[in-house]
Amino acid sequence: MHWHGEPHAVILLKLDFDAGITILTGASDIGQGSSTIVAQIVAEVLGVDYGRLRVIANDSAITPKDNGSYSSRVTFMVGNAAAQAAENLKALLVTAAARRLGIDDTELEWLGEAACPRSEPDRHVAFADIVEEALKGTGTITAKGVFTCPPEFQGGKQRGGAVGSTMGFSYAAQVVEVSVDEELGTVTVEKVWAALDCGFAINPMSVEGQVQGAVWMGMGQALSEETSYEANGLHQVANLLDYRVPTMAESPEIEVHIVESLDPNGPFGAKEASEGPLAGFLPALAAAIEDAVGRRPTTLPVTPERMYDLLHRKTRRPRAEPVRGDA
């Protein structure tokens, strides 16, 4: 991916006489919000109302190729491409607005839904008129934005180095509170607190949703989801009753704290969200169990059977004392 010479993300914008902007992206929104993110970024750069934007995603006849949803790359790479596309479109519109106002580009103040000369703040030209000016002679306008990871972020010659992985890395911390039924081995997750430095949170609600979903997915892996096979190769848990995806009944409240920073390379400083919270649940749970009963599981999922075996094997380390602030 990294070395075939194409940019790592491409966004196309189309502006037509209705003064509406179509964003064309190959990025797949399966509910994680990639279409929302590109729309937010374009709207932010251009300063226009959201109502002017429409997103067309995943139509390989029309949309530019996207490398795919993996390695938490989409917000970072596709977002950067979207920002560049919007800047490129804005440059064309600035020129058209300046021409309509009879001034030089450098004298123009861009207001989003309008523009004016910096020296005459009351003399506006509305967005629709700017568009009309821009379309003269050329008709429908398209703009493109691309993003390519700088070489120092592209990975080396090691196996897997060319996969095109993200260059945005978040930091996450997580606290899990559990209770353990020592006679049955049942582990109950009472509550989870997760903090994430995702860079700038372009859509905080979406970040929260991603973190909660990721934490919970980690919980499923850690407590009840397990793939196993018969000796003859048949899958033992080939249905949603035996492959135990947690229900709402045993799923805890998950409190999310977004701790922002600004990544110098990400779109508006954004990095990525949710890989840390997913991976973080498993060791946090193991640590919580150790805090509760003095034994740390090393095999997942921690089914009641495994927990019971862990509790009742012969050698037993002393239970960890709870930490007290006044000790």
């Binding site: 929260e208 709402m248 799923s251």
Partner: peptide, 19 residues
């Protein structure tokens, strides 16, 4: 609400925002 929806699985949200 949690009890009433306990028979509905979700794979994306972790249920918090559904509640």
């Amino acid at each position: 609400i949690r009890s009433a929806l306990a028979g509905n699985l979700c794979r994306c949200t972790g249920y918090v925002k559904i509640l």
